[in-house]
Amino acid sequence: MVDPAQPPEPDPADWRSPDPDRTFVARYECIAPALCAWSMRHIGQTVRARVEVDDVMQETWLRAYGKRGDFRGDERAFRAWIFAIAKIVLLEVVRSVRRLHRVQINDGATSLLLALDGVHESVTRLTQRLVRDETIARFLDRLARLPPEDQDLISFCGLEGATCADAARKLGISTDAAVKRWQRLRARLGEEGLGHDWVA
């Protein structure tokens, strides 16, 4: 029985929902583990000395949240959109770290690059929880034992949600090869209990 006094629960799949904030949060939470894993994989030791994974994630969230009104698309497009933002954030971080490295500035970089005041507390808690999540750690550990090409393929297709054709172009391989390898990898991850629902 639906209580008429209570507003209906927004449908996360419906972007025309009257409460886009709650829909956005629900969508983000779905892909946040993948974003966390992706960030952990791409942030090297030197960068991490200045920027933590959760900083990158929260910066990504903040930028996406600010632009949420401009987004139109389905779930797959949302994942790609978030990762595009994350890539730009991380690219900027890498460039800044490189500059800092060259000029031997050892101060913390977060304050210079990121303004995280607007991040909701719930997002912060989510990020902090994901960073400590052992399932993501195990996933990355297994990923690190794969050949580099397979690691990249999983990153593109499994985390970012890119198509095999897109991943194939970036990796310089044929689409057929990318499709077959991705299917094989996905099956192997599934057999090893690593086929999480946040893997595309």
Partner: peptide
């Protein structure tokens, strides 16, 4: 991609 983000940040 619909909704593809415009360049964000200072990178131009």
């Amino acid at each position: 991609m619909t909704g593809s983000p415009e360049p964000i940040g200072s990178g131009g």
